[in-house]
Nucleic acid binder design. Structure first.
Lengths: 211, 211
DNA sequence: CCGGATCTGTAACAAAGGTCACATTTTAAA
DNA sequence: TTTAAAATGTGACCTTTGTTACAGATCCGG
């Protein structure tokens, strides 16, 4: 099962020998939607590769206020964690399963080894850093240059895409946490979007049809 | 001159053989304060290593509005650029000399080679990615969780530190551009800081003494 | 089917930040 | 020295976002 998933998600980018190594040293981990995979200030001993599902990456400030940074999908890895692994530092972020998710956990000892041994691994690591930096820039653009209504639209779009479902099962309060604002503000803006015909509101769920 | 600077800034982290390679293939570049080193959507053919001075990294939105992301100092490199080099993509950011600055420019062909050949180079690259991700998180915290008055204080502190001078030569308008706000807002907040005895305002300059 | 818990809608108000207008000060160039 | 340009100070006002309060809707367990 692990092998099948691994090949599906990674055979394009990893050479056969590396896939074998991953199978040998990696362990499968399954998490249910909503479970926390990595907590802030955890020491990270394993590097997760995403096989199936999706993960939400969050930042928290000193008062415990949250902000969603981005989502990860199949084939992604968390470069923040990567960074922490290599530097042996605590996690700066929280990772929460957005859907039921399957991961391979790679022990960090192997990572150093593979970095010298496999070119495809090095490329993967660099590629991951690159995409994460790009996503971070995108996040910065969003919070620095956009108003809350636009941020909300993007959030709903992302969410629909990640879950491959236009019907989002979520409350206003949860959105407010993710965007670091208040429930009242979100309810207000959602109502505006509904009046503009872009979404349809129901209790515990939002139908996104025309954003 | 290049050799002396290079050794001063990098001999702790690079092995002798790599230093020799850098001397052989790198070229010295000198830029005056205020000059642009990398422009958004430039193709980057050389990787800069900072020998002396400081660089300001900026993001721009579609309307041309700016936002300073962070500053780089001696021994730093721009991981954003690194990322662009390795991925052969356009620059997502602008780099402007904050002071008179000296750089070694490394042709990107060498980078791939050194990555397999020198462990110290690999570590440097990973280390750079790590610190840049950390700075990006810091930037996100700042814009997401802080009000403009706190952001302004941090900006002034950073600026004073980078320039090693509590007397900043800068106008309110310039600060406004860097923080992506308006001149009036900055004047207002600076005046408040002055009234609180934290800074002293003069034309074209701000004395930061107690932030 | 009742009652508490949760979720949503909305009004009223406060605070932060953005905009406009204009006066005053300072500087530098002619 | 005069004058235009640049920089700063400030009042008035608007928009966006945050806060508080409360009412009504919906759900779920007993």
């Amino acid at each position: 099962m692990l092998e099948k998933d691994l090949r599906e998600a990674y055979h394009f980018i990893f050479e056969e020998e590396l896939l074998q190594e991953i199978l040998k040293f990696g362990t499968l981990k399954e998490v249910k939607a909503g479970e926390t995979i990595i907590e802030i200030s955890d020491y990270v001993k394993n590097m997760p590769l995403l096989l199936e599902g999706a993960i939400k990456i969050l930042r928290e400030d000193k008062d415990g206020d949250e902000l969603v940074l981005y989502f990860l999908e199949r084939g992604d890895t968390c470069a923040m964690t990567l960074s922490c692994c290599l530097g042996q530092t605590k996690s700066e972020i929280r990772a929460v399963a957005e859907k039921d998710t399957r991961l391979v956990m790679i022990p960090i000892e192997k990572m150093e080894e593979w970095t010298s041994r496999f070119k495809s691994w090095r490329n993967f690591v660099f590629e991951s850093y690159h995409s994460r930096l790009t996503e971070m820039l995108d996040t910065i653009d969003t919070i620095a240059f956009l108003n809350m209504d636009e941020r909300l639209m993007r959030y709903l779009q992302d969410k629909a895409k990640i879950n491959q479902d236009e019907q989002l099962q979520i409350t206003h309060q949860e959105i407010a946490y993710d965007l670091h604002t208040s429930r009242v503000v979100i309810s207000r803006l959602l109502k505006k979007l509904e009046n503009e015909g872009k979404i349809r509101l129901q209790r515990n769920s939002i139908l996104v049809h025309d954003l």
